[in-house]
């Protein structure tokens, strides 16, 4: 095994151990965390309420992140967010309409909605296949299909959360034309600035992965997710420290 693989393997095992300790040990110890407030997340209940009042469906655009491809974790993050949002957005008289640009994500999203319906009494209606729409296989085709769906359904609120590239601008244009209030967040680094330009409620790429820790309806599960953010922060400091030490070592090496 090459040395770098061995180092990566040891680092991964250490991280899994730390995360497992914080997930399970943290819950046992009952540590309460105070999360940094995110403006877009704070605006979410108001968005959901406005949709519930008018009885219009909320459109959730999960982007074109494929679960089975290189963007699998972005796709999985979309599912985690949908699972966290489903109980609150499913209480309006109409269930949310979820769009994806990937076949596996479409099936999983349908499964997440069914699961939420079975688990939470407040969701009275069972989801139909029309609640999850695959709108296109390429990012542009996906965005145009989702934008057309916005024009057809006239939702009061749209949530664009997932692997969205520059094509997210099309979704924003459709929202603007229909006076739809929105929240936008993408995991794509090449389009990190788009949410800032296109939505009043914007999130940075990394915050997308943290959303379930803010939104999950079950307190115990939410606490577990928040503990995983602590593990992530510890790992971040270790990586930052390693980068700084490495830079220092290289600088000193050039002198001697």
């Amino acid at each position: 095994m090459p040395t770098i693989d061995l180092v990566a393997f040891i680092a991964l095992i250490a991280f899994i151990g730390l995360l497992a300790f914080l997930l399970y040990g943290g819950i046992v110890m009952g540590h309460q965390l105070r999360l940094r407030p995110i403006r877009a997340v704070q605006a979410l209940p108001d968005l959901v309420e406005s949709a519930t009042e008018t009885g219009s469906p909320i459109q959730i655009n999960l982007g074109s992140g494929a679960i089975s491809g290189t963007q699998s974790l972005a796709g999985l993050s979309s599912m985690a967010i949908l699972a966290s949002l489903a109980p609150s957005v499913g209480v309006s008289s109409q269930l949310p309409v979820v769009t994806t640009g990937d076949g596996v994500s479409a099936l999983l999203a349908q499964s997440v909605l069914h699961q939420a319906h079975q688990q939470y009494e407040q969701i009275e209606r069972a989801p139909s296949p029309n609640n999850t729409q695959f709108t296109g296989a390429t990012p542009t085709a996906y965005a145009v299909g989702a934008a057309l769906l916005t024009e057809k359904n006239h939702p009061q609120v749209s949530l664009h959360v997932g692997q969205l590239g520059t094509e997210a601008m099309w979704l924003s244009v459709a929202d603007e034309r229909q006076n739809v209030r929105n929240l936008m967040a993408t995991t794509a680094t090449q389009a990190a600035e788009i949410p800032l330009l296109a939505s009043e409620n914007a999130l940075f790429p990394e915050e997308v992965f943290a959303l379930p820790a803010y939104l999950h309806p079950e307190p115990e599960k939410r606490q577990a997710l928040q503990n995983s953010l602590v593990a992530q922060d510890i790992a971040r400091w270790v990586v930052v420290g390693t980068i700084l030490l490495g830079s220092l070592a290289l600088t000193l090496q050039s002198f001697f």
């Binding site: 991280f15 899994i16 995360l19 999985l76 993050s77 997308v208 992965f209 992530q232 971040r236």
Partner: peptide, 9 residues
């Protein structure tokens, strides 16, 4: 790091 955390979860 966020992806790694999600993967391990």
């Amino acid at each position: 790091l966020a992806s790694l955390t999600l993967g391990v979860r």
